Amino acid sequence: MTREEKANVIQDLTSQLADSPSIYLADISGLNAAQTSDLRRAAFKANIKLAVVKNTLLAKAMEASDKEFGNLPEVLKGSTSLMFSEVGNAPAKLIKNFRKKSDKPLLKGAFVEEAIYVGDENLDALVSIKSKEEMIGEVIGLLQSPAKNVISGLKSGGGKLAGILKTLSER
């Protein structure tokens, strides 16, 4: 790879790092060709961009980026795959589901909504992160719940009241 090609790759990686709110670093070494293909297919279906990168080029792209990656560049050892996603927990769910069949991929680290997670032990915490849409849905559900209770109470109470009035009028 020439210097120009390396510079272009670093520039592309820097722009991808800047554009993506969720960045996951995973180790997929040890997966055979069929497993890697299955992982790529699952990532595509989940709207996750998966790319295998050179650690030195990724480290330089992180350095050139406006984002603060903290100690995330320290995990760039061995084979590294990048996962970009708009939804914060989608790559974590993909990794967890894929691990039902295999012991890989291993989570090296993640950058999700300005927070940095280092190490595979954070996978469960990352899976439990709710996306913006899930949070909005929960808030709407909580807001609708009291109104639904009042309306159902009025409807059922109206029937009871009419029954009581009818019984009283008959006497």
Rank of each mutant, 00 (worst) to 15 (best):
K60T: 09
L31W: 01
E63R: 10
D103T: 11
R41V: 06
I28C: 03
P105V: 03
V52Y: 11
G30P: 15
L39Y: 11
A46R: 06
I136S: 00
E170R: 14
R99N: 14
P73F: 00
V53Q: 09
K77Y: 06
V87K: 13
D12M: 10
Q11L: 10
D19C: 04
S81L: 00
Q144N: 12
K60L: 14
M135L: 15
A64N: 15
A110S: 14
F69N: 13
T80Q: 03
I116A: 03
A125F: 02
S85Y: 02
E113G: 14
A147N: 04
L123W: 03
V150A: 04
F98K: 02
F69C: 05
L126C: 05
A162H: 06
F111K: 10
K49P: 08
L57E: 06
L57N: 10
D19W: 04
D12N: 11
L72K: 05
E170H: 13
E121K: 14
G109Q: 05
P73C: 04
I136F: 02
T14W: 05
Q11A: 15
Y24R: 03
K104T: 07
N47E: 11
D124T: 09
N89D: 06
S85W: 03
G157F: 01
K77R: 14
Q35G: 05
F69Q: 14
G159V: 00
F111A: 10
N47T: 06
E114I: 01
A51S: 14
D12P: 02
N8T: 12
D124Q: 13
